[in-house]
Design a protein around this nucleic acid. Structure first.
Lengths: 378, 378
DNA sequence: ATGGATATGCAAGTCTCCTCCTAAATCTCC
DNA sequence: GGAGATTTAGGAGGAGACTTGCATATCCAT
């Protein structure tokens, strides 16, 4: 998205502009023939051809395999595609209890996953070290050349202000730390740090329950309750990155919602508390249903406040309480009805525990694409 | 703001693009010499010259008077300016009790004002008629050619959805009505309808208390309490235009805030209830101070919810309760402190009763500028 | 009045894109 | 298997837009 800023264009920038348009078309759909690209961009075939040549020289585009499946009369057209292998990005999620790393190509396809449990007691410095070494090892294990890693994004459980400084109640020792600067440290490519819930909503919009919705609220329920929102498809962070932190307003009761989910009932080996609760609720255990109802009572006012404030198309529930979703959604809807002007659609996250890391991949890709598809780093 | 969409550019669009860039530069600062324009846009002088020629031919630009005040050696440069008189816009505010009409040029300078009291009991059809005839007479009185009226915008006390349909509790008979369509009816130029609070926040951002702030919440206090917000400098309307309607959430108590402002004390002739209350509060009348405190108690939770939801840079208080502002602001700040993560700055509207109409002018101008400064209606 | 300084406006040169044409490659039908 | 149809590939010529450079015009200061 290139703003027609305040600078004029000469012929050289016209060419860059058009090359970028072609790359963008290729990025949106691959492979395409020159004729398709010409029709799609409104440029003439010779112009498209020369743009594709230039893109190929730079490695961003490549000729695709011949496709013999569909037969058409006439000379077969060469087909070009966006080279998703022209770079890599990493999305990371480092929380209190676990770390998830994802390696993806420029098409967003996940090439590798690494997951690691973390001792919740682990200190800030060691935790940083774990992340740094983990990333290092992850890249080495999959032979990623450092020059090919165009961006990495790390999700953290805390507010990240515009300058990149963290404020976290979950990992207090990271408060005041500029994690991005610490991780970047001489490495090529972008290094981004973002609030985990903010990444979750990006992920839901990308591949999850909120595909293509513009104004989305995401409610993360887990060891804490936190919310995030996109407006017009863009993440809204607020003045100091504090947007959506309704979990902190005692009046609304969201901050105590987690307490409702403690479950003293039967629990299978290796089963989490929430999973046991969900199983009991599925079996119509009255105590379990009461707990779920209590939880809905506690988070609904906050959701109502958000719904009234931003009037979103969709509210996505994610995080630890997601397994309860089937029971929760109608309860929340009931409670929202008298509280709001329009009851938004409520959906459950479909991304599971990788949600935040997928959002991190998305944010890293957004960064790469904004480099590549606007001014073009040609 | 022109998105580098998906279409390529040929030489003709390059020229349009550059002409637009020059117009934009001229719009941002007038007058300017060719050399200044060339430096500002990065284009060469001949290019700028031909663009200015074209703009002059279309009436958007014109040569400015010679400025003899500053003397410099050398041949004096011609100075060109954006022709604010190349078009007109109208901003209107029609509420329950009054109608305000503003006529402005393309520079946003108000050329004429018309204000009219309205019987609150007036029905929907007659009210529409009043607006229509009022606009008509207003334009005639100031000899505005219909072709020159590039846009008009009307603020109404109700939610306006994306399609333009109103939902209003203040003027129930207008609910379900597409006022824009009714007013446009064959007239040239754009006809826009917008929620009054939404316009108020635009006005505050433009000329009022929130100049240049990006994320702003505006709280209108008057016969009802309503809120609106801009995010990233753009009005956020929500899925159905319902964003910011926190006044409707009983839990937060905003809906009853108005009750706190009834004032049974001494009242001068022609003085409104709120003005009398403000005077009593200024005189430290304990009953008045109690009423103001009560009001602050009632609206603060809603403001807190908005502050947590969007984390704005600034909250602007506007509408009927503005005269109480000096007393209100510290009270609200006190109440916000324990409820929010960051207490936003709180400011008072500086625009008085024309606020909504000024916002309407701003929205009309936004529309004209988006026509003119992006693709250029050349 | 003259010299210095700056703006103007024209001309030449270069670059990019478009249209048009011919050659090449493949499929279909005979 | 060959001819015709169809589509793509690639190059040539032309038009348009921008830039650089230069001669001219205008004004201030000496």
């Amino acid at each position: 998205m290139l703003r027609n800023g305040t600078r004029g264009h000469d012929l050289a920038s016209l060419r860059r502009l058009n090359t970028t348009v072609v790359l963008r078309a290729l990025h949106r759909r691959s492979p395409q023939t020159l004729a398709e690209l010409a029709a799609g961009t409104g440029l003439s075939r010779p112009t498209v051809e020369s743009a594709v040549e230039e893109l190929t020289a730079h490695g961003w585009a490549g000729e695709a395999e011949r496709d013999d499946s569909e037969r058409a009369p006439g000379r077969p057209a060469r087909r070009f595609r966006f080279r998703v292998e022209a770079g890599r990005v990493v999305g990371a999620d480092i929380g209190l209890h676990k770390m998830v790393l994802l390696l993806a190509d420029l098409g967003g396809t996940v090439l590798a996953v690494r997951r690691e449990d973390i001792d919740p007691e682990l200190g800030g410095a060691q935790r940083l070290d774990l992340l740094r070494k983990g990333l290092e090892a992850f890249l080495d294990a999959h032979s990623v050349r450092r020059d090919d890693l165009l961006a990495r994004c790390v999700g953290v459980p805390g507010v990240v202000d515009a300058g990149g400084t963290i404020t976290s109640y979950v990992i207090p020792e990271w408060s005041g730390v500029d994690l991005g600067r610490l991780l970047a440290d001489g490495e090529p490519g972008h290094t981004l740090v973002e609030n985990d819930v903010n990444l979750a909503v990006l992920a839901e919009r990308w591949q999850g329950a909120a595909t293509l919705a513009g104004d989305v609220v995401c409610v993360l329920t887990g060891h804490r309750v936190a919310c995030s929102l996109t407006i017009g498809g863009r993440l809204h962070r607020g003045r100091r990155g504090g947007a959506g932190e309704l979990g902190l307003l005692p009046l609304l009761g969201m901050n105590t919602a987690q307490d409702a989910l403690s479950w003293k009932g039967e629990r299978r080996a290796g089963e989490s508390e929430v999973a046991a609760l969900a199983r009991a609720a599925d079996a119509a255990d009255p105590r379990a249903l009461a707990a779920v109802t209590d939880f809905a009572d506690r988070i609904s006012p906050g959701i109502a406040a958000l719904a009234l404030a931003v009037d979103p198309e969709l509210v996505v529930l994610t995080g630890g309480a997601t397994p309860l979703g089937g029971h929760l959604v109608p309860l929340i809807e009931d409670r929202l009805r008298p509280l709001t002007l329009h009851v938004p659609r409520i959906a459950l996250s479909t991304l599971g525990e990788q949600g935040v890391a997928i959002g991190a991949v998305r944010k890293a890709l957004d960064q790469v694409e904004s480099d590549l598809l606007t001014d073009s780093a040609l």
